[in-house]
């Protein structure tokens, strides 16, 4: 990214950081309180919906934010500050001093990476639900969906993280928004939208669920092969995960709003 580092550019970069429980951007969720650019340093303050949002989740967001901002050229150091949290001091200190979660919270059991992995798996299931729904809506049958691979959707060499936003110099999108799947031994072409499949792959590839263009695109929550027989049950389970993430997102949104209202009231008084 060329050009001067502005607070807007920092926010755009932070948009890649998600609340791991909700699988939504911390910028879209309104967690970012302030961004101060004083090159080569950038300072980001963020606040979560409650003072006791999981410290592990807060830790993941803070470390991800620091890492993303430090990828911007011209930024040597990102300072990420968590405010109004029960463990704001430990987390702010630990993240900015490059400590490990275990060193920051010696009495914590389990490790933060396994928590992250569990939440990533859930985010993946939720994204699978949205991707499969879009494919079914476009007219594919369950039998056809279980046979899909990245290659069949012309998605074997695509940068998923850039999908949806990046635009090439000539104005054409970097990544295809739709493709045609040929079914019934190639005699029928069905055009399917790809936005939600890109989003799915952006999670599936780093998790190692899809590593090759010929890998099956989807699988069961237990990591087994998706078949025409288990398709419906798996579809219902992924729907449930999506409903849960969405429902919890609603709760967090209302708590966040209530808390912000109270904070602003306190400032006025």
């Amino acid at each position: 990214m060329a050009g001067p580092i502005t607070p807007t550019a920092v926010r755009e970069r932070l948009d890649r950081v998600t609340d791991p429980e909700l699988d939504r951007s911390i910028v879209a969720l309104g967690y970012i309180e302030s961004v101060d650019v004083d090159l080569p340093e950038v300072r980001v303050e963020f606040c979560l919906p409650t003072a006791w949002c999981s410290p592990a989740f807060a830790w993941m967001m803070a470390t991800d934010a620091r890492r993303e901002v430090e990828t911007l050229s011209g930024v040597e150091r990102a300072v990420v500050v968590l405010t109004d949290h029960m463990h704001e001091e430990e987390i702010t200190r630990g993240v900015n001093e490059g400590m490990s979660f275990e060193a920051t919270f010696p009495d914590a059991d389990g490790d933060v990476e396994s928590v992250r992995r569990d939440l990533d798996e859930k985010a993946l299931l939720s994204r699978q639900y949205h991707a499969v729904s879009a494919l079914l809506d476009a007219g594919l049958t369950p039998e056809q969906v279980v046979g899909l691979t990245p290659e069949r959707l012309n998605l074997d060499h695509v940068d998923d993280a850039a999908a949806g936003s990046a635009v090439r110099a000539d104005g054409a999108p970097e990544t295809p928004e739709a493709t045609t799947v040929f079914v019934r031994e190639g005699t029928v072409g069905i055009t399917v939208p790809l936005e939600s499949t890109h989003s799915y792959l952006a999670k599936a590839r780093p998790l190692g669920v899809v590593t090759d263009g010929s890998d099956p695109l989807f699988r069961t929550p237990d990591g087994e092969t998706l078949t025409a027989e288990n398709f419906e049950r798996v579809y219902h389970r992924t729907r449930l995960t999506a409903t849960n993430m969405d429902g919890q997102g609603g709760i967090c949104a209302y708590l966040h709003e209530a808390r912000q209202g109270r904070r602003h009231l306190a400032e006025v008084e």
């Binding site: 919906p49 409650t50 003072a51 006791w52 029960m86 209302y254 708590l255 709003e257 209530a258 808390r259 209202g261 109270r262």
Partner: peptide, 12 residues
Amino acid sequence: QFIQCFYDYHTG
């Protein structure tokens, strides 16, 4: 913090 959190649920 506990009662404040409850209160956020209440007002939210």
